[in-house]
């Protein structure tokens, strides 16, 4: 059965017919062309597919698309652009927190959810917020610096 859903995606209303088992990361990547959301494990273990739903960082690889009906979804594409990046995105670039980049969209969005609620986080709060996002390249040190720098800019 196709399910009709409506939601706000990156500040724009979207109406879609989806399958019952359809997963949000696949809908975003394969049907809506929003490939900035990465799929690295498909089991909810790595955080690369993080998007914000109603302002909360969640994993789009273990979220039924049908369940975002009526909600607000923000993907990395909705946060900023190359021409006009969000301060968190710019902070990641400036701090050297981006290496292979596969974890970066998820990290940036998780950091956004944190900073929206907690504008001046401690190192411990940053670690707590980002503990579900795996990065294999950076050792996280520059990611923490980036989040702190972004907080300072706000």
């Amino acid at each position: 059965m196709a399910v009709d859903i409506k939601f706000i995606l990156n500040d724009k209303p979207v109406e879609l017919q989806v399958e019952a088992q359809e997963i949000l990361v696949d809908t975003l990547r394969e049907r809506l062309g929003l490939t900035g959301t990465k799929k690295a494990c498909g089991t909810g273990d790595c955080g690369a597919c993080t998007v914000l739903v109603d302002g909360e960082a969640v994993r789009s690889c273990i979220l039924l698309t049908a369940s975002v009906d009526g909600k607000k979804v923000l993907t990395i594409e909705g946060l900023g652009t190359v021409e006009n990046p969000h301060p968190i995105q710019q902070a990641f670039v400036d701090a050297g927190a981006v290496q292979c980049g596969y974890c970066t969209p998820g990290m940036v969005l998780t950091a956004k959810a944190l900073l929206d609620k907690c504008p001046n986080p401690t190192t411990e709060q940053i670690k707590e917020a980002l503990a579900g996002n795996l990065c294999r390249c950076t050792g996280y040190t520059k990611i923490i610096k980036a989040v702190k720098a972004a907080a300072k800019k706000n």
Binding site: Q21, I23, G42, T43, G44, C61, I62, L63, L64, S67
Partner: peptide, 15 residues
């Protein structure tokens, strides 16, 4: 039943 879905959705996704 899908509640938070953190366990079951992965199983649904992979059939």
């Amino acid at each position: 039943i899908v509640n938070g879905g953190t366990d079951i959705v992965e199983k649904l996704a992979h059939r």
